[in-house]
């Protein structure tokens, strides 16, 4: 599968990645190479093999419903780019 620059741009948008227009061709080439490589999988006759999402056949452990966390807002917001009145700030969201 060879990706066209327009497809790269579409994927980059879905992943919210700004790509320099000058780099789009290069990404298209690299990504196409990678896709061509993984397409070896097409030849696999997996039949009705169960997809394996986890290496271990374990099940989800459940934790008791208890409040164990305390307020650490100041500590956590120390690494935030923009905060005011305890809120994280982003450019205006239009709804």
């Amino acid at each position: 599968m060879a990706l066209k620059p327009a497809e790269v741009e579409k994927i980059a948008h879905l992943a919210r990645l700004a790509i320099d227009p000058a780099d789009v061709e290069g990404y298209a080439r690299n990504l196409s190479d990678i896709l061509a490589f993984v397409e070896q999988l097409e030849a696999v006759d997996a039949g009705d093999v169960t997809p394996m999402a986890h290496p271990l056949e374990a099940t989800q452990r459940l934790r008791p419903d208890a409040v164990t966390e305390t307020d650490q807002r100041t500590h956590f917001q120390a690494c935030a780019p923009a905060v005011e009145a305890g809120l994280y700030l982003v450019p205006r969201v239009i709804e």
């Binding site: 934790r63 419903d65 409040v67 164990t68 966390e69 307020d71 650490q72 956590f76």
Partner: peptide, 22 residues
Amino acid sequence: KSKIFSGASTAYGAAPNTQACA
């Protein structure tokens, strides 16, 4: 009492981000 995947409180009306754990 606590959130679906964390031990933070679900109580309504707290000051912003004081019940948002890591």
